[in-house]
Design a protein around this nucleic acid. Structure first.
Length: 1041
RNA sequence: GCCGGAGUGGCGGAAUUGGCAGACGCGCGGGAUUCAAAAUCCCGUUCUCGCAAGGGAGUGGGGGUUCAAGUCCCCCCUCCGGCACCA
C-alpha cells in the first residue's frame, strides 16, 4: 500500500489538479471579460455572447441534466476564446418566483434566507465544473440592485402606448400631444381612435380629467383590467395562460385552476403579436420552437360579419334601456348599412362574428353565442329563459378540466331568438353553447355545419339544418369510400331515407346547381340497395344533397356551391354569387362584397392573450405604482426605485380551497410604513401585487452587460457591442413562456430606443433531457436498477422474484430514486471526466439516458492522456516525450485530429469530437516515441473539454500560464488528408474486394486497379461488364451479368 | 384529432447528406503481465449457417426509384414532445 503511493507519485490526481486550477483562475481572473472602454479591451477581436438559461436556485441543487447545456456553452466559449474572440459568458440566478417561495414556505424559513443558501450551493456546484464564466458579472434577480431595473422596465411599459400606425411603442407623452393636437380622437368607449375620419369620435380636449385619465390608462402597455383569470387556490395566486397546462392544472405543482373574474395587471403583449410572429423568420432557432411560438400566437385571417337580430325574437323586457334591439325589415337594414358602412363597434341590433371561412357564409344555418356573451340575456325569449339561464349557469361552474373532458359531447340551449344571414336573408336560430369561447374572436360564431367539424357535430346533436356550400373533392370522397363496409352501408341506408323525404322539396327549390344532384338522387332511389355502388362520385353527390348522413363534414378548400341556392333570388341585385368559384376566389369575392355592403370586413385574429402580470404572492418584485384615494394610479419616479420588498415574518400566500374566497395579499401584512406613502400631505397606498416569476428573466441577459451600473439597466456602449446573443442554450420547456415574454420586453425596450437590436436571441439550442434507465417487470411496474440483476448482456431479472424485466428509458425522478447527483460523480472521477462523459453521451439536442457504468471509460481516456505526458512513477515528464520530428503519419494524424475537432466543435458535435480524441490517444499510447510537436497541440485540443487537465499538462510541459489562454492550433489542409485510401470494390452492389490507391487516384486508375484485383476477376468471371461506376475516394461498383 | 421529432448491435451512439452500415465508448469474450488480484496493454465482438475457407440476412414493417438506399418517394406500425372546441 505504502509502496504504491510512493512509487506512483505521478498518478493523475484529479481532485488536487481541479482545485489548483480553479483557485488559479479565480486568483488571476482568467475568464474576466472586459467591456468596450475598459482598460485592456481589444476592439480588434470579434465578439461572441454565449448564454445559458440561468437556473432557479432550488434546494435540490443541480442535477445532471443542468450541466449538459452548461458544458456545451463552456466548450464553445473556451474554443472561441482560444480562436481569438472576445467572449461574454456569464451566469446568474433566477431567484424570485414560485419555486423558491414554495421551498421557503415548505421549510418554514424566510425565502431570502433559503434563496441565499441555495444560490451559495449552486454557485459552489457551478464552480466545481470548471466553467469559464465571468463571475464578476454574476447577478441574482431577487437583489434590489437588480430588481430596481425590473421595476424600471415596468415603468417603461406603464409609461408608453402602442402606436398601431407607426407599429411601435412610444412614450405616453407623445400620445397626449397627438390627442391634444386633435390628430387622434377618442371613441365612446374611451378608446383612442388612431385614424379618425372627419368628425368621428370625441376630441380629447372636450373630455373631463377623469375621462382623459381613462383614455390614457387604457392605452398603456401595462394596465389594470377586470378579466376572467386563472386562479389557483392551492398556490394562492393567479396564473397566466402560459402557466396553465391543457388539463387545467398549474404548470408548477399540478394544482387545479379555476376561472374567476379579477382586476389584474395585464401587459399588452397582443399588440406585438404580428412582430413576434414575423421576426421569428430572422432567428436561427430550432424549427420546433418557432412552430410552438407560431401556434401560441395563433394568427388567423378571415372576416368579421354582422348578423342582424330578427325582431319578434327579443322580448319586451323589464330593463328596456339595455335591451338588445332588433330589426323588422332585413332589406331596410341592408340599405342602411350600405349607407353607413361597417361600424367600428357593432350596434345593438346585431351579432358580430369572426370567421376564417367567410366563403361559407351561405352555409351559416344557425348562430352560437358563448355562454358569457353579453347578448345572451338580452335576446333570450321568455319561454327559453329558464333553460338558457340554467345552461349558462352550469357552463360557468365547469372548470377547464371538465370542459376539456366533455369536449366530445356537444351541449347547448336555444335562445328562441333568430338572426338574418346577411348573405341570403335566411332567418336562422341563435343558440348558446360552451363550444364557443368568449375569449376568442367576438365570442359568437356563425355556424356552418356543412364545412366545420364542431358545427357539424352540434347540428347533428340538435337537429339543425346542414347545407353543403363547398363541394367535396374527389380525394376526400375516396377517403370516405375507404371507410369500413359497415359505415358505408349505414351512409347508404340513411341517405336513401333522407333523399326520399327531401327530393320533392329540392325539386321545388329549383336550384340550378342542384339539377345534376337531383338526377343522381332519382337514380339512387330507383336502384336497389345492393347494386348501388358508393364510388367517390356518388359520395360527392350524396354529400352535396344530404351531408347529415356522413360521420364527418368536408372542411377543406374546394369549389363553392349553393351560394346562393336556387330559391334565394329574392335579394335583388345585391347577391354575391360565389357558385363555381374556388375557395380562395370566393374568399376574395365575399370579402369585397361584405365591405361594399357594410355588413362585414376582413379581419385578423390571434390566439395570443394579454399577459396577466400580477401575482398574489410575496417573493417577487413589488410593482412600482401608487394608488390614491380616488382610484388613480401613479407611477413612481425613477429616482424612487427600487421599491424594496419589505421583510415579512409571515409571507405565506393565502391558501383557501374555496375558489371564490376574497383574496388577501401577502404584502398587505406589511406595516403602514411600507404600505402608505405620504407625499405633499396626501397619503398613497402602494400596489400590493407582485410580478410573476418571468419578469426577472425577461431581461437578465441585458444586465450581464454591465451588472454594476447603478444608473442604468445596462451600459449603451456594452449593449451595442455585445448584443445580440450569438448562442442561447436551455431547455425546451421555455419554448413559449420565457422566450416569448423576453422577446416582448426586448421589443418594447427597442421601440423606446433603450437598446439597438430587435431580437435578443439570435441562435437558440435546446439541450436534450438526461433520462435514466429503468426496468419494467411482467406486471408493468417500473423499477430502478437497484432492484434488478443483469443475467447476461441485455437480459435482466427482478432480483427479488426472479421475474424477467425489460430495460426501458424513463425520466429521472425522486419517486424512482434514480436521480444522479453531479457532486457524487465529480468526487469519484473529477469534473473533467464528468464534462467529457456528458458531452460524449450523444448529440447535445437529443434526450438520452444517463449510464453511470459508462463514466469510467471517459476517466480512462484522461488517465491515458495523462500518461502520454507524465511518467506515473516519477511524476516527471514522460521519457517517451521527445523533441524529434514526427514522422509523416503521426503529423497527418495530428492535423486530421485538429481539423476534425475544430469542425466538430464549430457544429456542436461534441460527441464525435471526443471520439477523435480517443482515436488520437489509441494511436499514440503504444508509441515509444511521442514527439512534443504533436502532443502539445493535442493538449490544447483537450482544453475546452477538460480544462483542468489541459492547464496542468500545459504547465508540466514547461509553459507559462494556462492552456486555455493559448491560441487554438491550426491545421494544414494538405496534411489533414490521407495520401492513400482503401477503396471498396463492389460487383453488383456487393463488396467483393478492397484496394489501396493514392487518395487522389482518378476514375481511370480506380477502374484499372479494381479490374486487376483477383477477387474482382473471380466475381466477374463469365459475366459481361455493362458499366463501371467509380466514385473518387469512395468506391468502385462494377455492373456485370 | 392536428402539428413536430425519432426508431440503427446487448447498451449510448457514428455514418462527406445517395457511395464500404455499426466510427468512438460501454459491456462481453480471449490473451499478455502478475504468486494472485486490481490497474495496464494487445486481440476479438451485428446476427446467422459453418471446424474453417466462405455463404446468407441486416438500419421499426411493407412496397418503390437507383449501378448503389439508414439516407430519396408512397403506405403502415411504435415511441417521445407540443397544441387541442381558437370559429
Amino acid at each position: 500500500m505504502e509502496t504504491t503511493d510512493t512509487v506512483r507519485r505521478g498518478i493523475y490526481d484529479f481532485a488536487a489538479i481541479e482545485q489548483k486550477w480553479q483557485a488559479y483562475w479565480e486568483e488571476h481572473a482568467t475568464y474576466r471579460t472586459l467591456n468596450p472602454g475598459e482598460n485592456g479591451f481589444d476592439a480588434s477581436k470579434p465578439k461572441l455572447y454565449v448564454l445559458d438559461m440561468f437556473p432557479y436556485p432550488s434546494g435540490a441543487g443541480l442535477h445532471v441534466g443542468h450541466p449538459i447545456g452548461y458544458c456545451a456553452t463552456d466548450i464553445i466559449s473556451r474554443f472561441k476564446r482560444m480562436c481569438g474572440y472576445n467572449v461574454l459568458h456569464p451566469i446568474g440566478f433566477d431567484a424570485f418566483g414560485l419555486p423558491a417561495e414554495q421551498y421557503a414556505v415548505e421549510h418554514g424559513i424566510h425565502p431570502a434566507v433559503t434563496t441565499k443558501t441555495n444560490i451559495d450551493n449552486m454557485r459552489r456546484q457551478l464552480k466545481m465544473f470548471g466553467f469559464s464564466y465571468d463571475w464578476n458579472r454574476e447577478i441574482s434577480t431577487c437583489e434590489p440592485e437588480y430588481y430596481k431595473f425590473t421595476q424600471w422596465i415596468f415603468l417603461q411599459l406603464f409609461n408608453c402606448w402602442y402606436d398601431p400606425i407607426g407599429e411601435r411603442a412610444r412614450p405616453i407623452e407623445e400620445l397626449v400631444t397627438a390627442l391634444e393636437r386633435g390628430e387622434r380622437r377618442v371613441d365612446d368607449a374611451m378608446q383612442v381612435m388612431h385614424a379618425p375620419s372627419d368628425g368621428e369620435g370625441v376630441a380629447y380636449s372636450d373630455l373631463s380629467d377623469a375621462d382623459r385619465r381613462t383614455v390614457l390608462d387604457g392605452a398603456r402597455l401595462a394596465g389594470v383590467y377586470e378579466v376572467p383569470v386563472n386562479w389557483c387556490p392551492a398556490l394562492g395566486t393567479v396564473l397566466s395562460n402560459e402557466e396553465v397546462t391543457n388539463e387545467g392544472l398549474s404548470d408548477r405543482g399540478n394544482h387545479p385552476v379555476t376561472r374567476r373574474p379579477l382586476k389584474q395587471w395585464m401587459l399588452r403583449i397582443t399588440h406585438y403579436a404580428d412582430r413576434l410572429l414575423n421576426d421569428l423568420e430572422t432567428l436561427d432557432w430550432p424549427e420546433s420552437v418557432k412552430i410552438m411560438q407560431r401556434n401560441w400566437i395563433g394568427k388567423s385571417t378571415g372576416a368579421e360579419v354582422d348578423f342582424p337580430i330578427a325582431s319578434g325574437s327579443a322580448p319586451a323586457s323589464e330593463s328596456s334601456g339595455s335591451d338588445a334591439s332588433s330589426i323588422d325589415d332585413f332589406q331596410a337594414w341592408r340599405n342602411a348599412r350600405k349607407e353607413s358602412g361597417f361600424p367600428v363597434k357593432p350596434d345593438a341590433a346585431c351579432i358580430r362574428i369572426y370567421t376564417t371561412r367567410p366563403d361559407t357564409l351561405f352555409g351559416a344555418t344557425y348562430m352560437v353565442l358563448a355562454p358569457e356573451h353579453p347578448l345572451v340575456s338580452k335576446i333570450t325569449t321568455p319561454e327559453h329563459r329558464d333553460a338558457v339561464l340554467a345552461y349558462v349557469e352550469a357552463a360557468g361552474h365547469k372548470s377547464d378540466l371538465d370542459r376539456t373532458a366533455d369536449a366530445k359531447e356537444k351541449t347547448g340551449a336555444f335562445t328562441g331568438a333568430y338572426a338574418y344571414n346577411p348573405a341570403n336573408g335566411h332567418k336562422i336560430p341563435i343558440w348558446v353553447a360552451d363550444y364557443v369561447l368568449m375569449g376568442y374572436g367576438t365570442g359568437a360564431i356563425m355556424a356552418v355545419p356543412g364545412s366545420d367539424t364542431r358545427d357539424f357535430a352540434f347540428a347533428k346533436a340538435f337537429d339543425l339544418d346542414i347545407v353543403t356550400v363547398v363541394e367535396p373533392t374527389t380525394a376526400w370522397a375516396e377517403q370516405v369510400a375507404r371507410l369500413p363496409k359497415g359505415t358505408l352501408s349505414e351512409i347508404r341506408e340513411a341517405a336513401r331515407r333522407r333523399i326520399s323525404e327531401s327530393i320533392e322539396r329540392w325539386k321545388h327549390e329549383g336550384s340550378e346547381d342542384r339539377g345534376k344532384h337531383i338526377a343522381f338522387a332519382e337514380d339512387y332511389l330507383k336502384s336497389d340497395r345492393g347494386d348501388m355502388q358508393l364510388d367517390a362520385q356518388s359520395i360527392r353527390n350524396l354529400y352535396c344533397l344530404t351531408p347529415r348522413v356522413f360521420a364527418v363534414p368536408f372542411c377543406q378548400p374546394s369549389v363553392a356551391i349553393n351560394s346562393p341556392m336556387g330559391g334565394d333570388h329574392t335579394l335583388g341585385d345585391d347577391v354575391c354569387d360565389l357558385n363555381g368559384r374556388s375557395t380562395e376566389q370566393a374568399m376574395t369575392a365575399i370579402g369585397d362584397w361584405l365591405e361594399s355592403c357594410g355588413t362585414g370586413r376582413r379581419a385578423v385574429n390571434y390566439k395570443l392573450r394579454d399577459w396577466l402580470f400580477s401575482r398574489q404572492r410575496y417573493w417577487g418584485e413589488p410593482i412600482p405604482i401608487l394608488h390614491d384615494n380616488a382610484g388613480r394610479m401613479i407611477p413612481l419616479d425613477e429616482a424612487d426605485l427600487p421599491v424594496s420588498l419589505p421583510h415579512l415574518d409571515d409571507f405565506s400566500p393565502m391558501v383557501d380551497p374555496d375558489p371564490n374566497a376574497p383574496i388577501t395579499l401577502p404584502l398587505s401584512k406589511s406595516g403602514d410604513d411600507w404600505k402608505i406613502v405620504s407625499r405633499e400631505g396626501s397619503a398613497f397606498r402602494r400596489e400590493l401585487n407582485t410580478m410573476p416569476q418571468w419578469a426577472g428573466s425577461c431581461w437578465y441577459y441585458l444586465r450581464y452587460l454591465s451588472p454594476n451600473n447603478t444608473e442604468r439597466f445596462c451600459d449603451p456602449e456594452a449593449e451595442k457591442y455585445w448584443m445580440p446573443i450569438d448562442l442561447y442554450v436551455g431547455g425546451a420547456e421555455h419554448a413559449v413562456l420565457h422566450l416569448l415574454y423576453a422577446r416582448f420586453w426586448h421589443k418594447v425596450l427597442y421601440d423606446l430606443g433603450h437598446i439597438t437590436t430587435p431580437e435578443p436571441f439570435q441562435k437558440l439550442l435546446n439541450q436534450g433531457m438526461v433520462q435514466a434507465f429503468a426496468y419494467r417487470d411482467p406486471a408493468g411496474r417500473i423499477l430502478n436498477d437497484e432492484r434488478v440483476t443483469e443475467t447476461s448482456p441485455g437480459k435482466y431479472i427482478v432480483t427479488e422474484s426472479g421475474d424477467p424485466a425489460v430495460q426501458i428509458v424513463a425520466k429521472m425522478s425522486k419517486s424512482l430514486k434514480n436521480v444522479v447527483n453531479p457532486d457524487d460523480i465529480i468526487s469519484q472521477y473529477g469534473a473533467d471526466t464528468f464534462r467529457l462523459y456528458e458531452m460524449f453521451m450523444g448529440p447535445i439536442e437529443s434526450s438520452k439516458p444517463w449510464n453511470t457504468r459508462d463514466v469510467p471509460g471517459l476517466h480512462k481516456l484522461l488517465q491515458r492522456i495523462w500518461r502520454l505526458v507524465v511518467d506515473e512513477h516519477t511524476g516527471d515528464i514522460s521519457a517517451a516525450l521527445t523533441t524529434t520530428t514526427p514522422d509523416d503519419d503521426t503529423r497527418r494524424l495530428l492535423h486530421k485530429t485538429i481539423k476534425g475537432v475544430t469542425e466538430d466543435i464549430s457544429s456542436m458535435k461534441f460527441n464525435t469530437a471526443i471520439a477523435l480524441l480517443f482515436e488520437f490517444v489509441n494511436e499514440l499510447t503504444p508509441r515509444e516515441d511521442r514527439p512534443r510537436e504533436v502532443i502539445e497541440p493535442f493538449v490544447l485540443l483537450l482544453s475546452p473539454f477538460a480544462p483542468h487537465m489541459a492547464d496542468e499538462l500545459w504547465g508540466r510541459l514547461g509553459h507559462e500560464g494556462p492552456a486555455s489562454l493559448q491560441t487554438w492550433p491550426a491545421y494544414d489542409p494538405e496534411l489533414a488528408k490521407d495520401n492513400s485510401v482503401e477503396i471498396a470494390v463492389q460487383v453488383m452492389g456487393k463488396v467483393k474486394a478492397r484496394i489501396i490507391v493514392p487518395a487522389d487516384a482518378d476514375d481511370k486508375t480506380l477502374e484499372r486497379v479494381a479490374m486487376e484485383d483477383e477477387a474482382v476477376k473471380k466475381a466477374i468471371e463469365g459475366k459481361t461488364v455493362r458499366k463501371v461506376i467509380t466514385v473518387k475516394g469512395r468506391l468502385v461498383n462494377i455492373v456485370a451479368n
